[in-house]
Amino acid sequence: MELTVNRQRHQIDAEAGMPLLWVLRDILGLTGTKYGCGIAQCGACTVHIDGVAVRSCQIALADVGGEVTTIEGLGTPDAPHPVQQAWIDHQVAQCGYCQSGQIMSAAAMLALQGEPDDAQIDRIMSANLCRCATYPRIRAAIHDAARRLATG
């Protein structure tokens, strides 16, 4: 099966039903996307498919109908995405394990939402679980990233 991830095309020899998460992690070696619960409760596995946030633990390889972007494709340590830069500036991460998913969810939201208020952020980001409870800094970083994206 053909799969485009971070603008690179791959031929994948795997079951149609294998969740995208495990294709990314165990076949393509893209381990920035995390396994946390396997049932769309934690959001650590969030990727973009054609720009829309999707829980990669839930979508089967055969159902991936678009281009996949993972945290590695969003930005890099040398050239971080504005959302990642805001996460760095606010030192959001504690254990950091959920943060790939948090950042992917926030980036997808900000691509559509402009400058969201706290209530909007609460509606969109409450499906991403952070066991360290870094939430106040997540909120602050999203506001900051939204301003940066708005001012280009």
Binding site: A16, G38, I39, A40, V54, I124
Partner: peptide, 24 residues
């Protein structure tokens, strides 16, 4: 306007839920 239902409840050609998976 918020979080698409399909972020978790994916559209599938062969939905086969395991225990506690998000319905699809």
């Amino acid at each position: 306007e918020t979080l698409p239902c399909t972020t978790c409840h994916v559209t599938s050609s062969a939905p086969a839920n395991g225990p506690n998976d998000a319905p699809a």
